[in-house]
């Protein structure tokens, strides 16, 4: 029996987790303006991917939530932001930022591998719709990987040296 539904379900899970992580990182680093704005911009992609996965999941007998809960409740987010803002005037959160970017990068790498698995299976099983889905979504996952890597490189010398 095909394990394709398993792959789709795992992708849905990992994309959801990546989207949530992006939003949480944005909230935690509200005072790092570029991180805040970009992480929120980038979080649009996992959201879109999850919708498309839910849609395509029907063909494979899956019921995947197209709109899972993305954020922690507003009240918690506000606390996260206030915490980030208050700590943001001290040097230690720099290390927290590096750790968050590192985690984000690893998470995006996991999702990227999941898209590879889907693309390979779609080719092997002659599933053009799934192949097209992987082709259009995977570059956006790679973009998140590249950004988290690049930003880690840009930020780390000052944070570590100071």
């Amino acid at each position: 029996m095909s394990k394709l539904p398993l792959v789709l379900r795992e992708l849905h899970r990992s994309e959801t987790s990546l989207g949530r992580t992006l939003l949480a990182v944005a909230d935690r680093h509200h005072v790092e303006h570029e991180v805040f704005h970009l992480a929120r911009d980038l979080a649009r992609r996992p959201r879109e991917h999850v919708r498309r996965l839910a849609d395509v999941g029907h063909d494979h007998g899956l019921t995947l939530d197209p709109e899972p809960r993305w954020t922690v409740p507003d009240r918690v987010a506000a606390v996260l932001r206030r915490g980030g803002d208050a700590l943001g005037r001290r040097p230690e959160p720099g290390l927290l930022l590096l750790a968050d970017l590192r985690r984000l990068h690893r998470k995006a790498a996991g999702v990227s591998l999941d898209w590879e698995l889907l693309a390979q299976a779609a080719q092997g099983m002659k599933q053009p719709r799934l192949l097209e889905l992987a082709r259009s979504c995977h570059p956006e996952t790679l973009r998140i990987m590249q950004w988290s890597n690049a930003h880690l490189k840009v930020m780390s010398p000052q944070i570590i040296a100071s």
Binding site: V31, P91, V154, I159, S162
Partner: peptide, 19 residues
């Protein structure tokens, strides 16, 4: 030359957090 230059807005951020 380890990375692109640190731009003015980021410098202000580094002053803000004391580095």
């Amino acid at each position: 030359h380890m990375s692109p230059p640190t731009h003015a807005m980021q410098m202000m951020r580094y002053v803000e957090n004391g580095s």
